[in-house]
Nucleic acid binder design. Structure first.
Lengths: 329, 329
DNA sequence: TTAAATTGTGTAATCGATTACACATCACTC
DNA sequence: GAGTGATGTGTAATCGATTACACAATTTAA
């Protein structure tokens, strides 16, 4: 590896001058600058980031903690983050908790030890240990998808999105509406969306029966299983519509319904949330909610950069969403 | 930030000893070790990776260069890589070329300057400048999906997969088979799959008409457009089956065919490659080829680690695939 | 009993950059 | 022509770890 010292020797100057030329700091005569740059070009020299960041405490890397790589939501958000940050010369250090919430904490500490300039967390569960870890890290931090007290959060408007969907179903004449949710440990997806569904049903004077409700785990298979359970348990009191809190679970539900000979939407309307790429190409195409994941990622990147540069940043950002009405309703 | 010096002071030993205790190198008495570990626990100290990697030339980070984040193939491969490497204490530094092949070269150098221990590249185009950049980097390197001369490559058996698909269609009685490919600059997807299709047709004594052939750009939309073109240009000589080299383009093609009132597979059979998650849930479900992307990622992680640890590694690995016969044929 | 080997710890150099400080030169200003 | 500010360059400290080398104490071997 060529180092700054090699360049300095070749250019017959001190490494200080080389550093200045490279970083446009301090004065360097045009002559010397050219001489240095020429050698840099020729040798393909790149400064060691380890040395640089050891000295400057900046790495040009931001850490991203995901619950699960290779879900569409995650990868779209990451893409947005990267879109923005790559242009600013930042790279992303990726970590995947595989839905293990202890790992979130481990990774915060690990990323910190790697001198990342900031961290973006796509949280699932929220608990005190996590919050403490974030505060202890004392580093520009951003949460996407969950509101973390005291921490800048980009949150989807889960409540209103779910409420809009429910209202839309009611408006279409549905009175018995099933619901496939997820664990309450996930405040955003598990609690808010479920609460919105129940509140809305109540507000419109409609009953919510226990046997209309299932709890999946985000997977397509769990959507399938929960739909099966709901049909089994409902017997003579079968819903005419079902609201799955994610597209994937909606897809699973549709799969089971089709197997059982249900026509969609005639016999059963189905809606999801997420606007996954495939939702458009299903038969029938799926009614869902678009959360603009890429945009959110970009915004997150931009806000994190502001924080890194000590700009004032608000604590909470409520994101927009868009209902996409398609043929499954 | 607490440093090794702080820990040393608190434990009343030299930082050498702290380092030894943390890395299990050299001798440390049980007494002292416990004392140090206790303090490390309490303070939550983590060694600075910048300092560490400056000194040791190892970072515990591997660079991954993707053509496009948020395609399913990419994210599944990355997931596999991460699956394996995270367990070994490595993190992934992610870069996305956005299909700009110059960036591949830039990123190789950038990753090198970040002291990554190795690089995995999901290449699209292959050219001499890229090969030179890889050799200059002189760092454990792995290519997935394209065979790069002189560089360890994990390659899909694109030729036989495509040939199998074509044969399967012929076997089902199709004689006029359309083809939606991509640019020849992509040796694997653009050349091999196309060559296999043509070779197979020829071998079976079937004609290949120019107007049956389209060239898309991997996107769903391009599949749609190319299908439209093929139908327009074929007029009285319309194929009875179409082979799209990716699932996404197959989905686009199906979309257009449905709009035009074609029944699938009765009026037109469609196949893709990739076994995307959604392929199973389309109506009709899509016949495709599974490349086991996660497994490939894992294997890549494992091989790269071998290279990092100076183990001998073969130059070329041919990967397996699996035909998934579904209802679109 | 003494030499050799093992165990335990510290001193100081080192990795490759940045940067505070010092110093020299040069051009202006009054 | 002395003082002042701008320009250009170098010396050396520094960031936080690892590690070669030295040395002392203790154990083992002969």
């Amino acid at each position: 590896m060529t180092t700054i010292n090699d360049i300095a020797k070749m250019a017959e100057v001190s490494r200080t001058t080389v550093s200045r030329a490279l970083n446009n700091s301090g004065y360097v005569s045009e002559d010397v600058r050219k001489r240095i740059m020429k050698i840099v070009e020729e040798t393909g020299y790149m400064p060691s980031q380890s040395a640089k960041s050891l000295r400057t405490k900046r790495s040009g890397v931001v850490g991203v903690i995901l619950p699960r790589l290779s879900t569409e939501t995650s990868s779209r958000v990451v893409r947005g983050i990267n879109d923005f940050l790559a242009k600013q010369g930042y790279q992303i250090l990726l970590t995947d908790t595989e839905l293990d919430s202890d790992k979130e904490i481990d990774y915060i500490r690990l990323l910190k030890s790697r001198h990342v300039d900031g961290i973006i967390l796509l949280a699932t569960n929220v608990n005190d240990r996590l919050l403490k870890a974030i505060h202890d890290a004392d580093i520009p931090f951003l949460s996407i998808g969950q509101e973390l007290p005291g921490i800048t959060s980009l949150v989807y408007d889960d409540y209103h999105a779910a409420s809009d969907l429910t209202n839309m179903l009611i408006h279409k004449g549905h009175e018995k509406i099933g619901f496939i949710g997820v664990t309450k440990e996930d405040p955003a997806v598990g609690q808010l969306r479920s609460k919105a569904y129940k509140d809305t049903m109540e507000k419109r004077g409609l009953p919510v029966k226990d046997h209309w409700i299932g709890e999946g785990d985000f997977s397509i298979e769990s959507g399938y299983e929960q739909m099966k359970r709901i049909l089994k348990n409902s017997l003579s009191d079968v819903p005419t519509a079902v609201f799955a809190v994610t597209d994937r679970m909606a897809i699973g539900a549709i799969e089971y319904l089709k197997e059982q000979g249900y026509r969609i939407p005639e016999d059963m309307a189905v809606v999801g949330i997420g606007a996954s790429a495939m939702s458009k190409y299903l038969t029938p195409s799926l009614t869902t909610v678009d959360y603009f994941n890429e945009e959110v990622g970009k915004k997150a990147g931009s806000l994190l950069l502001d924080k890194i540069n000590n700009k004032k940043v608000e604590k909470k950002f409520e994101l927009t969403y868009r209902l996409i009405l398609r043929d499954s309703v």
